[in-house]
């Protein structure tokens, strides 16, 4: 009787032990397999040479009030607009509670006359119109995205259409009075 009980006990222990080993090896194996996927996935992320793309220096002195220029930074267009007094006033007179992405105009530039924004619609990545004379600028005199009809004001803020956010202000600083470094 006792011997029999010991037997089954031993067998039971053995089974639990085997189950445990099977489970732990299984888990370790699965974790290893999952981790080994990372190099494959990460190889698709931006490579070092892409990451090393330099900053962009822009001389603003030839740009008259009311004019705009487009420069390329990290493969993307950046809109720089020399805003007129009128445009600045229009951008600052807005009631913030009416905006989808409420940011005061003062927080979107270093010097009020220079607005610098990434020229890519935050909706689906099209390039809004309004940089060249004669292009539609939308109801708020900023930019108009031809793809899905987003309209931006003279501060690059979304006013109408599907874009969830304002045009992005890239990191930049003034190196001189009329020249900036983006990035």
């Amino acid at each position: 009787m006792t011997a029999k009980a010991q037997d089954t006990g031993a067998a039971g222990d053995d089974e639990t032990r085997r189950d445990f080993l099977l489970l732990t090896t299984g888990v370790v194996g699965a974790a290893g397999a999952a981790l080994s996927a990372w190099p494959f996935i990460d190889s698709m992320n931006p490579a070092a040479d892409v990451l090393a793309l330099s900053t962009t220096e822009v001389d603003l002195s030839p740009v008259e009030a009311g004019q705009s220029i487009t420069v390329v930074w990290r493969g993307k267009p950046v809109f720089i607009r020399h805003r007129s007094e009128q445009e600045i006033t229009a951008a600052r007179a807005v009631d913030l509670s009416t905006l989808r992405d409420p940011v005061p105009d003062e927080d979107r530039e270093i010097k009020p006359q220079w607005l610098v924004v990434v020229g890519i619609c935050p909706h689906l990545g099209c390039i809004p119109l309004g940089q060249k004379p004669g292009q539609p600028r939308g109801e708020w005199g900023g930019w108009f995205c031809p793809c899905h009809g987003s309209q931006f004001d003279t501060s690059g803020r979304i006013r109408k259409g599907p874009s969830p956010t304002n045009l992005v202000v890239p990191p930049y600083q003034f190196t001189e009075d009329t020249s900036i470094r983006i990035g």
Binding site: I41, M44, N45, P46, A47, V50, L53, R74, G75, K76
Partner: peptide, 17 residues
């Protein structure tokens, strides 16, 4: 998105993949 692109915009890495 930048993983899909392999960069900051649609570019050569995107075309190749």
């Amino acid at each position: 998105v930048s993983w899909l692109w392999g960069g900051y915009s649609i570019d050569n890495p995107t075309l190749q993949r």
